[in-house]
């Protein structure tokens, strides 16, 4: 008479499989699959007219890192220098974002609640605006006949139009403008958490404003600084849209190089190998980040023993 039911465990397992099956298959096929085959590609030989030959080759990395088959390609230090330039520009972008956002985040954190939310809205709004539109605005501003030059000429500040577009500076300005919300949000959340009484305590104990900043404010907002820096650095490093619009032919970043290999030079294995350079840099950065995080977690754990939870 008693109906038989599958055990609770079996029922839950069935639901779990139901939830995970399709997404897992999809992501295994269309996310992990592409990444794996890209890695394989970096070790293949490029075909003469685009395409690949399934012959092992280490020369794709060789061309970048210093060894090459002289019959076809020379080792050219230009790739490393472009990579390093990309790192430099990305780092400059991070720094610029940080310096610009930090005081602003502080200011917003001090506003009354309603204004706070309004300012956060204002700064996240550009995120909803098309990236290409936002960059287009800067093309309009920085061009020789652009808004900035018209204004400066009109005011008589300069006699000749300034040469801003197609420089490193233009690229940094563009990337900074586009990635500001990425820096602001993590920065703000750690600054907002900062307890004002800590600053007062520091001053009370005799620290100057500068000392207070260096010894209290900066260490306490470090998680936001590091988090924001990483999420600005990653998309900056591999960027090719900003340099292609604001850097032109003069400022080439690793992203442009990769794009060329895929869409005009049609040397996919080499392009994939360049891509792996970007990947490697990003992974290295994240590993450092995770190391720092886990160390902080451990410190926090030893400071306050976890509450026993029993049922």
């Amino acid at each position: 008479m008693t109906a038989r039911f599958a055990s609770l465990k079996a029922r839950r397992a069935l639901t779990l499989y139901g939830l995970l099956l399709t997404p897992t298959v999809f992501l295994a096929f269309f996310f992990l699959g592409p990444l794996s085959i890209m890695m394989v590609y970096t070790f293949l030989t490029p075909g003469l007219y685009g395409g690949v030959e399934w012959v092992f080759s280490h020369l794709n990395y060789g061309r970048i890192l210093g060894w090459a088959d002289t019959r076809y390609d020379q080792f050219d230090p230009v790739y490393i220098s472009i990579f390093l330039r990309s790192v430099r520009l990305a780092a400059t972008t991070v720094l610029t974002c940080l310096v610009i956002c930090y005081p602003f985040a502080f200011w917003v954190a001090r506003q009354p609640e309603r204004w706070k939310n309004f300012f956060i809205f204002l700064i996240t709004l550009p995120f909803f605006i098309s990236l290409i539109v936002r960059l287009f605005a800067w093309v309009l501003i920085l061009r020789p006949t652009g808004f900035l030059n018209q204004a400066l000429l009109g005011m008589g500040v300069v006699a000749q139009p300034l040469d801003i577009i197609f420089t490193d500076m233009a690229v940094v300005i563009g990337m900074t403008y586009v990635f500001i919300p990425f820096m602001f949000l993590p920065l703000y959340s750690s600054i907002e958490k900062l307890d004002g009484s800590l600053i007062e305590a520091s001053q009370d104990l005799g620290a100057s404003p500068l000392q207070t900043f260096l010894r209290v404010v900066l260490p306490m907002t470090l998680p936001g600084i590091v988090g924001g820096s990483i999420i600005v650095f990653i998309p900056s490093l591999g960027n090719f849209i900003v340099p292609s619009l604001l850097g032109g032919a003069r400022v080439v970043m690793i992203g442009n190089l990769i794009e060329q290999q895929f869409l005009s030079a049609r040397n996919w294995p080499f392009g994939a190998a360049l891509g792996m350079m970007v990947m490697a840099a990003v992974l290295l950065l994240l590993m450092i980040y995770v190391r720092i995080l886990s160390r902080e977690d451990k410190q926090a754990e030893t400071q306050q023993p976890k509450e026993e939870e029993t049922r």
């Binding site: 990653i234 990769i258 990947m279």
Partner: peptide, 24 residues
Amino acid sequence: FYRALMFMPMIMPDIILGIALLIF
């Protein structure tokens, strides 16, 4: 593993995902 899998695409530079998908 699933947490990492869902986290990865967000931190991956989009150009990498773009070329990987193209090759695939």
